Amino acid sequence: MAEREEKGEDALVAEIQKKITETFEVFDRESNKTVDVREIGCIVRALGCFPLRQKYRNCLNRFQPIPEDVILHAFEALDENKCGYITKDDLVKHLTQGGEPFTQEEMEDMLAVALDPETDILHYRDYRVKLVVDETKTFPFNG
């Protein structure tokens, strides 16, 4: 029984390592086993961890993923024309003028990952899938 549990743990560790490797490879634009330090935040979020800025860290004991329907509703609220996408200009406007605005670096990081490189628009129904965490396949991090 213990041997079976150990094999299950080994498989889980292998799966986690594979996911980390695959995620880093997405951001390794030059295929040289390195990523830009400014992309670490995006990589961490892509792995299902949602670190908070220092002033909010004491409010939560663990990182909480956001459900897919909440993400979709948020994007739909920004899609004033209800066309299924958000233009780069509209996205920049929303993320820099309301609430806690993105920094220029955060904005550049998000746009590099989120926008279709040919059309400069965000197809949010496709993009939201990248933002959703499958809680059954993530490593439980405690804050």
Rank of each mutant, 00 (worst) to 15 (best):
V113R: 03
T34D: 11
D120V: 05
E100L: 07
R125F: 06
D36C: 11
Y85R: 04
F75R: 01
L52F: 11
E9N: 08
V129A: 11
Q54V: 13
F50W: 08
K18T: 12
L72E: 06
A2K: 14
E22C: 11
T21R: 14
E25T: 13
D90V: 13
A11R: 15
R125A: 02
D89I: 15
D134E: 12
E15A: 13
I40C: 00
C49H: 15
Y85E: 07
R57H: 15
E15C: 08
K88F: 07
A74K: 09
R128A: 06
D126E: 09
V132Q: 09
E76Y: 03
D116H: 05
E76N: 06
N61R: 14
I16R: 09
Q17N: 12
A14G: 01
F50I: 07
C59K: 09
A46Q: 05
G41N: 06
F24N: 05
C83H: 14
L91N: 02
R38S: 11
L47F: 04
L52I: 05
E22A: 09
E76W: 01
M107W: 00
D36N: 11
E6D: 14
Q17Y: 10
L122A: 06
Y127S: 07
E108A: 08
P101V: 03
I43L: 00
H123G: 03
E25H: 12
Y56C: 04
Q64K: 13
A46R: 08
L47K: 00
V132G: 04
L60A: 15
F24M: 04
K93Y: 10
L12E: 15
K88R: 14
R62F: 13
V92F: 02
A2D: 15
L115G: 03
M107F: 01
N32C: 02
F63H: 14
I121A: 12
M1R: 08
C42N: 09
D126K: 02
I86L: 10
E135S: 05
C49Q: 13
N81A: 11
L52G: 13
P101T: 00
F50K: 07
G41M: 04
R128P: 00
R4I: 14
K19R: 11
H123P: 01
H123R: 07
A2W: 13
D79E: 01
R45A: 02
L78S: 10
E30Q: 07
E15G: 10
P65Q: 02
E6T: 10
